[in-house]
Amino acid sequence: MAIETTTTGILLIIAIMALVTLATRFGGTFLMSFVTISPRVEGFINAMASSVLIAILTPMAFDGDIGARAALGTTALVMLATRKPLPAIAAGILAAALSRYLF
């Protein structure tokens, strides 16, 4: 089934996208309300939380260009050295711009 991209169709497409996205925003919390929070479940949630970030970032680093890798590597080093997010992010962006300019 397909929706034509007329004005009405586009509004329908946007409404569907909004509902699907809202379901993802509500769904995790809603499903958790049926789960008893045992220590194991809490362990799962806590490990999963930071793993989300790693799972977003790993392909970005593996598949990215030299700029992406320089940015993530520099941010990691500065963050581990200083524990200050803003300098780490700024250094990462600078590293991406510089490496793309140079290579």
Binding site: V20, T21, R25, G28, F30, M32, I37, I45, V52, I56
Partner: peptide, 12 residues
């Protein structure tokens, strides 16, 4: 957007 499911669950 399914990552939102996990994010919402982690905030539960």
């Amino acid at each position: 957007n399914s990552r939102h499911l996990l994010m919402g669950a982690s905030l539960f």
